[in-house]
Design a protein around this nucleic acid. Structure first.
Length: 477
RNA sequence: GUCCCCAUCGUCUAGCCCGGCCUAGGACACCGCCCUUUCAAGGCGGUAACAUGGGUUCAAAUCCCAUUGGGGACGCCA
């Protein structure tokens, strides 16, 4: 689709923001919104701003703020400004509330939460829209000493058009909109108001967010108008759903970004997967960060919601592991090796050797956890032998394994090529297939029936450990 | 209930804006085959979709309308 649409009417530098509320961990959906904003900013050489929407003091926590930041950092979504905190900016909001009050575009409301709740219930049960009546609009003089909120005076006739980059022109009837609260009785401003003030104050040019905000947009545009400010470009991106097409939530499995880190996913793989949910570039599936920045365009973002598919993410992760530098993987897998007790905390490994071991496992590991599990038989002295495998491959012809051990121990060069020669000559001598000797050896060395090529495995495991393991199974047979 | 959004294989999507090149392309998953010391990776092939009904048109997946289905929003949450 027309990518020129993205850049029309921007003489100024692109400034976008990601504005999570710290009432939970960064989840998959939020991460994608952040990613789209980040890509848009980087594509246009604009600025990406992080803003924490913590005006709900009862639900926001420091812990969540830190967790969101950790997740953003892990995904390498670096920001140019912030993190700003709305709780640091209350005086700014106050001044804007004053402005609206002075202009007669807002008014105090003395209705109590209980009254409002009751009216809402009544309206809903009668099948009527639960809209605020506007009863306090006509109160001429402020009532001293009575707790009040401040409501925005919404135009009650006409239409408002949201010109959305993704959804197109969306028309709302003003009489559907209510005089919503912009300032709580405790003096804290509310979301639909602060978001506008902040976007004005931070000179945000493009508001890119989930389409669950589309319905808020007409209210917000009216605030811009009442304040006489320029309206930014809106782009409402479709949501991510679970397999049952319901809004993605905990019951669909892991939804927090950090859970994917724990499960051994690479940040770039997750980002690649997420960006492809709603966005595409022809038939391409795997992108480098550079390519994403170069190709990304809001015009190529689809309109419909996407179902999160963990299997495709797993496949993408395997692609990333496969093509990553083994040195990089070596660093990344360390915490997993420690967690599994394969390596002890602070233990130094020969990283060159570890990289070599990893290279043999890259194309058969889909996550860092799988990689760490396989690394077990390279690192430990002895391996636990799978009982099934033992029964099948280590219950007969043990003479051959003994012979193999003898011949290998005489090898001057313990390399895959030399080891292979021994296997081949044994197969020829006994007139058996290579697998007939390779499989028992594999079980003896790795403890299981599945591994990279056994000659290569033996070389990496090394002369000493390999022979020790062979001896052990021969003795125990 | 009211308002808003959406609708191509099971899933992610290309194609739709600018109708013919679409007997609808790619990817995940699934199923075969090849390769092979196991498992992968890789290669080759297969099953599988334009929600329905009306228009408009010489021609519609593509434009219009309706229906149905799904999602979202209606808070002194964000």
């Amino acid at each position: 689709m027309a990518s020129h649409k993205d850049s029309c009417s921007l003489n100024n530098k692109v400034r976008v923001r990601f504005a999570p509320s710290p009432t939970g961990y960064l989840h998959i959906g939020g991460a994608r919104t952040a990613l789209f904003n980040w890509l848009f900013a980087r594509h246009h050489q604009g600025e990406f701003i992080l803003r924490v929407e913590d005006t709900d003091s009862s639900r926001s926590t420091e812990e969540y703020i830190d967790a969101i930041i950790d997740s953003m950092e892990w995904l390498e979504l670096n920001w140019d400004e912030g993190p700003y905190r709305q709780t640091d900016r209350f005086s700014i909001y106050k001044s804007y509330v004053e402005e609206l009050l002075k202009k007669g575009k807002a008014y105090p409301c003395y209705c109590t939460p209980e009254e409002l709740d009751q009216r809402r219930q009544d309206a809903l049960s009668q099948g009527k829209p639960p809209k605020y009546s506007g009863s306090c609009r006509t109160i001429a003089e402020p009532i001293q000493g009575k707790p009040a909120t401040v409501r925005f005076k919404m135009p009650q006739e006409g239409q408002i058009v949201v010109d959305d980059l993704i959804k197109g022109s969306v028309i709302f009837e003003n009489n559907q909109l209510e005089d919503f609260i912009i300032l709580r009785s405790d003096g804290a401003p509310t979301y639909n108001f602060v978001v506008v003030v902040d976007d004005i104050d931070m000179e945000i040019t493009h508001v890119i967010r989930g389409d669950d905000h589309l319905n808020n947009t007409p209210k917000q545009i009216h605030i811009y108008k009442a304040l006489g400010r320029e309206i930014p470009v809106f782009a409402h991106i479709p949501m991510i759903l679970g397999a049952d097409k319901a809004r993605l939530s905990k019951r669909h499995g892991s939804v927090s970004v950090m859970a994917y880190k724990e499960m051994g996913y690479l940040p770039d793989a997750l980002a690649n997967y997420l960006v492809r949910l709603g966005w595409s570039h022809g038939d391409q599936e795997v992108f480098t960060k550079k390519e994403l920045i170069r190709y990304f365009s809001l015009g190529a973002v689809g309109k419909s919601a996407a179902v999160f598919n963990p299997e495709k993410l797993l496949w993408l992760n395997s692609q990333y592991i496969n093509k990553s530098e083994s040195r990089v993987l070596a660093e990344m897998v360390m915490p997993f090796l420690v967690r599994k007790g394969i390596v002890s905390e602070g233990e130094r490994l020969d990283m060159e050797w570890l990289s070599k071991a990893i290279e043999s496992l890259q194309e058969r590991s889909r996550t860092l956890i799988e990689l760490a599990d396989s690394l077990r038989y390279y690192l430990l002295d002895y391996v636990e032998i799978d009982q099934e495998a033992k029964k099948k491959f280590l219950s007969r012809d043990m003479d051959r394994l003994a012979e193999l051990k003898e011949r290998l121990s005489g090898l001057a060069l313990f390399t895959a090529a030399e080891i292979e020669k021994v296997f081949i000559s044994m197969a020829e001598k006994h007139n058996i297939k290579l697998g007939d000797i390779a499989q028992p050896a594999r079980v003896a060395i790795t403890g299981n029936t599945v591994s990279p090529g056994i000659f290569e495995v033996m070389e990496i495991v090394g002369h000493e450990k390999a022979l020790k393991r062979l001896s052990k199974v021969v003795e125990e047979a």
